[in-house]
Lab assay of single mutants.
Amino acid sequence: MTGIVKWFNADKGFGFITPDDGSKDVFVHFSAIQNDGYKSLDEGQKVSFTIESGAKGPAAGNVTSL
C-alpha cells in the first residue's frame, strides 16, 4: 500500500505514515526503511509499505520511497 509520511523523528528513529486509503495512521520504525545509508523519512514524503504485526499493534514494514 502507499501513503504519506505524517512525521518522522530521526533522533528517536520512528514516526507515522498516513495511508492513502484513509485508514488509521501506521507506526513506522527506522529498521523498516529499505534504503541504503541513513534510514530516515521526511514529512510529506510518498512511500510504499506493507502492514506488519508489531508488538504494540500494526506497524509499517518494507518501507520504500516513491
Rank of each mutant, 00 (worst) to 15 (best):
M1W: 09
M1P: 05
M1R: 11
M1L: 15
T2K: 08
T2N: 06
T2I: 11
G3S: 00
G3F: 01
G3I: 01
I4N: 05
I4R: 09
I4M: 09
V5A: 02
V5N: 01
V5F: 02
V5L: 03
K6T: 06
K6Q: 05
K6A: 07
K6Y: 04
K6G: 03
K6F: 04
K6C: 06
W7G: 02
F8Y: 11
F8M: 02
F8R: 00
N9L: 08
N9S: 11
N9Q: 06
N9E: 05
N9I: 06
N9C: 10
N9K: 10
N9V: 05
N9D: 13
A10N: 11
A10I: 12
A10P: 14
A10C: 09
D11R: 13
D11E: 15
K12D: 04
K12I: 10
K12L: 11
K12M: 12
K12Y: 10
K12W: 12
G13K: 05
G13R: 05
F14V: 06
F14T: 03
F14G: 02
G15S: 00
G15N: 00
G15C: 01
G15M: 02
F16E: 03
F16N: 02
F16T: 03
F16P: 00
I17H: 00
I17D: 00
I17R: 00
I17A: 01
I17F: 02
I17N: 00
I17Q: 00
T18P: 00
T18L: 12
T18K: 14
T18A: 14
P19H: 03
D20I: 07
D20A: 09
D20F: 08
D20P: 03
D21F: 07
D21W: 07
D21V: 08
D21M: 05
D21E: 06
D21A: 05
G22I: 03
G22K: 07
S23E: 07
S23H: 07
S23A: 08
S23C: 07
S23W: 05
S23G: 13
K24Q: 13
K24L: 10
K24D: 14
K24N: 11
K24Y: 09
D25M: 06
D25N: 07
D25F: 03
V26F: 04
F27D: 00
F27K: 02
F27W: 07
F27V: 03
F27L: 04
V28A: 03
V28N: 00
V28T: 03
H29P: 03
H29I: 04
H29C: 05
F30N: 06
F30S: 10
F30W: 15
F30M: 11
F30H: 12
F30K: 12
F30D: 03
F30Q: 09
S31W: 07
S31F: 05
S31N: 08
S31D: 04
S31K: 09
S31M: 09
S31P: 03
A32V: 10
A32I: 04
A32E: 07
I33P: 02
I33D: 02
I33N: 03
I33T: 03
Q34R: 11
Q34K: 14
Q34A: 13
N35T: 15
N35H: 13
D36R: 06
D36W: 08
G37W: 08
G37V: 09
G37M: 09
G37L: 10
G37C: 12
Y38T: 11
Y38M: 10
K39S: 07
K39G: 07
K39Y: 08
K39D: 05
K39Q: 11
K39V: 06
K39N: 07
K39C: 08
S40P: 07
S40G: 12
L41A: 02
L41N: 01
L41I: 07
L41V: 05
D42E: 13
D42M: 14
D42S: 14
E43N: 14
E43K: 13
E43M: 15
E43G: 14
E43A: 15
G44D: 04
G44A: 05
G44V: 02
G44I: 02
G44W: 04
G44Y: 05
Q45K: 05
Q45V: 09
Q45C: 05
Q45T: 13
K46M: 11
K46Q: 11
K46L: 12
K46R: 12
K46C: 10
K46S: 08
V47R: 00
V47I: 05
S48H: 14
S48I: 12
S48L: 12
S48Q: 15
S48V: 10
S48C: 12
S48F: 12
F49E: 00
F49V: 01
F49L: 04
T50P: 01
I51G: 03
I51M: 11
E52Y: 13
E52D: 09
E52P: 03
S53I: 12
S53C: 14
S53A: 13
S53D: 15
S53E: 15
G54Y: 11
A55G: 12
A55K: 12
A55P: 15
K56C: 14
G57M: 06
G57R: 10
G57S: 07
P58K: 09
P58W: 09
P58Q: 10
P58R: 11
P58D: 11
P58C: 08
A59W: 12
A59I: 15
A59N: 10
A59T: 15
A60L: 02
A60M: 01
G61R: 13
G61T: 14
G61W: 11
N62I: 08
N62R: 09
N62E: 08
N62C: 11
N62V: 08
N62D: 06
V63E: 01
V63L: 05
V63K: 01
V63M: 02
V63I: 05
V63T: 02
V63G: 01
T64Y: 12
T64E: 10
T64F: 11
S65T: 13
S65H: 12
L66H: 10
